[in-house]
Design a protein around this nucleic acid. Structure first.
Lengths: 128, 128
DNA sequence: CTCATTGCAAAACGTTTGCACAAAA
DNA sequence: TTTTGTGCAAACGTTTTGCAATGAG
């Protein structure tokens, strides 16, 4: 196999995702990348995200109609979207127990699941 | 209040959604509507979907990056996306028990939840 | 040198909007 | 008539792609 050549842009974009607290919008990824590589363009961000996705290092999360990206390999988790401030949080708790291969609801073989919770985050819930 | 005037297009689009087995893509809604009203245009479909959404008769579902629409008022349900045939199914079973108001994962007040299951639908699972 | 990667600008795609015309009241 | 709804085409924002120039080996 041919190992992809390492490039500054790719490394920076990968690190932006890896160090993020949660999933990021493309526009967000662009500005964070430009903090290190000011000349980087939008096309490169999109191309790199596709490449990293194909390699499995990153994956898209569609949340509330917005496409965000997050680093893979962080273990099983879900997302919480605060209906007040709009921020997205990563929750490592899981309210679902359906092992892969479970036959559910009359014949549906479940391989994976995704849960999105909506409500008030700790900050917004405390009235501040 | 002014009751919206009934129109053929609107009625047909609403009925398309109401009689659908699950959420539909906009392109799908267009062709199904054109079966009854061949002259209908895409803009009218979008405008009508927005109107029906604002009235609460219909709501968008973003699934796997695609925006689909389904009729409201069908009770609590979730979606199953078949990884083989790509079809979306509506499941009235719910694998989550988090009543509204539950404080979850250390301070997150949950008001609603959404679950998407991935796997093989009954047809694809039976090897046909 | 060769060849993958980049930035830019143009194209493509899904969705929205302006406007003149048609339909309903 | 007045008013609302419609179709078309243009506009819009986001994502993708063609291409010439750059950068790495």
């Amino acid at each position: 196999m041919t190992a992809p050549r390492s490039t500054r842009q790719r490394d920076v974009i990968a690190r932006v995702l890896e160090t993020a607290e949660g999933p990021l919008a493309v526009a967000d990824i662009l500005v964070r990348t430009q903090a290190d590589v000011p000349s980087v363009g939008l096309a490169t961000v999109y191309r790199t995200l596709k490449l990293l996705s194909d390699q499995g290092h990153v994956h898209p999360v569609t949340l509330d109609g917005e496409t965000l990206y997050e680093a893979s390999g962080r273990g099983h988790h879900h997302h919480f979207l605060c209906t007040v401030c709009g921020r997205v949080f990563t929750l490592h708790a899981c309210p679902v127990s359906i092992p892969a291969g479970t036959v559910y609801a009359g014949g549906f073989v479940v391989e994976a699941h995704e849960v999105t919770l909506y409500g008030r985050c700790p900050t917004c819930a405390s009235g501040r």
